[in-house]
Amino acid sequence: MARMVGLASLRSSRPGPDPGPHGRVPEAPGQARGGRNRAAVWLALAAVTFLSGCASSTSWGWYVIDPRTPSGWTNIKFLANGMGATILISLIASAISIVLGLLVALPGLSNRWGIRLINRVYVEFIRSIPLLPMLFWVFYGLPIIFRSMGLDIPIDPFWGAIITLAISDSAFTAEIYRAGIQSIARGQSEAAQPIGRSYAQTMRYVILPQAIRRILPPLANQFIYIVKMSAFASVIGMQELTRRANELVVTEYRPLEIYTLLILEYLVLVLLISAGVRWLERRMGSDERG
């Protein structure tokens, strides 16, 4: 929004102060009715103040991403092209994390403490490592370990980012699974005893279908978290959204506009995910109610 209004005012504003459409807005307080109206007026005033800053001047330079100029359009395309990598990294990392998380969660539900210990050690250890150091360790450190084992497995920025995000997230996913599975009443697995031939069948046909529905919202949270944390991949040279923004800032010297657009790109991505998850929740929710 801010960008669009900013762009719209470009023509008139660049030569001098903008008397333009904003001039009428201060009359709004006269029309205020009740608290909600007053709040709307204050919001409008704040927006006007903010935008007149954009419009007036030297501090904003939206031309750098103005789609009507060839260079602006090129810049926008350059920035948006990182979207594919961000989405792909996030999707693959989440998929791995969702499988890995379940594999880590299951030992945590065992009756035997020795088996539960596997889960505890993994979760406590992995979730204590900050993402950035883990990223450095995987990208710069892991290939050395591979080489010392005689394996020639290069780790490029793409897979380095995925491995790091997936492992780091799996500890949280595991805890989500454990909570979800434990929240299914004990009677469900008791009733499944004579019916499922094995633990795996009880899990697959009785417990997990119910647990998944409950843990969908926190899993979606984790997915959004991964999308945002994928920005860290920029520091190991992955050409995703943030990396591209950084590179453009270095050549254009317009951090404010470019990072604003970057934030909006993440906003759009996350809103789309939210909408998708809501749809999925509705579908699965109605499933249970019949």
Binding site: G187, E190, A191, A192, P194, I195, R197
Partner: peptide
Amino acid sequence: RSEVGMVFQQFNLFPHLTVLQNLMLGPVKA
């Protein structure tokens, strides 16, 4: 367990399955 059926105070039906699916799960899987 395969010789013994059990009926619980709280029914413990599987809420995500239809009545028919509740009844068919055991015979098909076990």
